[in-house]
Write a protein that binds this DNA or RNA. Structure first.
Lengths: 178, 178
DNA sequence: GGAATTCAAGACCATTTGGTCTATATATCG
DNA sequence: CGATATATAGACCAAATGGTCTTGAATTCC
């Protein structure tokens, strides 16, 4: 996963994969069959990790505003310094392969939907608790957050400075939370 | 430019470029010297276009809120349908090449700074005119907008639906503008 | 200990990559 | 027209691509 993550699909060559998996050419093809299949496996793992994080931090039993804050804090962490410069396999894949690879499309699309739904859910629980600012609608706020967070990952490729990311996150949340 | 735009750097092969430029192999190398140099030229043109748009719509002599609305409307347009699916050369390049290509880094970084500055400027003019909601700080709002817009371009690769983009833009602006 | 299985190393393959060069045609210009 | 410059098509190149196959060494199992 790591090597696709740091280089992207096209830029990752077989030798990179051999080095990363410590497998021989033969074994790699026996185990995964294909560069493309291997990539899909990597993507699946990456998505699964992201989903896990989401489920933990945006857990319905948790206080929603805390959860939101924690979830966003994770993004700040992952967009700072070396983490930030490394980028995000999902965003990179979306830009590189979306619309040209149906398998990829499905994965990206479904994660994106899940993320938006989880955020909307947390926001609407927050709203029910009277924690949202007036006029904030959970569903559109969720979509704004999704865009914002993915954009953060893009910006972080060239400017991964924690303090400004943190400030932006705080300022945005300030607009939503009472 | 178009071919890099729709496919990305690595995925664009010489034959694609020949077809796109209608040049022969020899002439292409005589004129541009390099795939990499040609790519940089394309990127420069793309950036120049983006800067021009920015300067028109966020022109200091223009009413700032209108300018902001117009500028964001342009993004909605460019992230809808086929336009959206095509993606954004800047975002794609950031994800694909940033941190591995100094020339690219410089261009992306400087455009990003310029965009943030222009937005911050428009926002602070809006603030001076009393058009901003309480507690909105132009500089952090500008950064939020940058992230949001770039994220929109990512999301639009798989879900380029105009109405939801428009709704998200409106909802976000609603949080900033009185 | 010997047979069977697994796996690593790397030779090998066709294709494609970015890039150069030559021969030929087409303009340009005096 | 004839000479010169220009640009074309495409042969050609070395290197790298994704992918297969053979060989030989470990390991496993009986």
């Amino acid at each position: 996963m790591g090597v696709f993550w740091s280089r992207g699909y096209h830029a990752t060559a077989l030798p990179d994969l051999l080095r990363a998996t410590k497998l021989s050419r033969g074994s790699l093809y026996a185990a995964f069959g294909d560069k493309h299949s291997l990539f899909l496996r990597a993507l699946d793992r990456y998505v699964a990790d992201a989903v896990t994080r989401m489920n933990v931090e945006l857990d319905p039993r948790r206080e929603p505003v805390d959860g939101l804050r924690a979830y966003l804090a994770g993004y700040v962490e992952r967009t700072s310094g070396a983490n930030g410069r490394r980028g995000c396999l999902l965003v990179a894949t979306a830009m590189e392969l979306a619309g040209r690879d149906a398998e990829v499309d499905r994965r990206i699309g479904s994660f994106f939907k899940a993320m938006e739904a989880k955020l909307a859910d947390a926001l609407s629980r927050a709203k029910a608790a009277g924690k949202l600012a007036d006029g904030v609608e959970p569903s559109s706020a969720a979509r704004i957050l999704v865009c914002f967070l993915w954009g953060l990952r893009v910006v972080a490729k060239t400017a991964p400075t924690r303090i400004t990311s943190q400030a932006a996150v705080d300022a945005l949340l300030d607009r939503f939370i009472r």
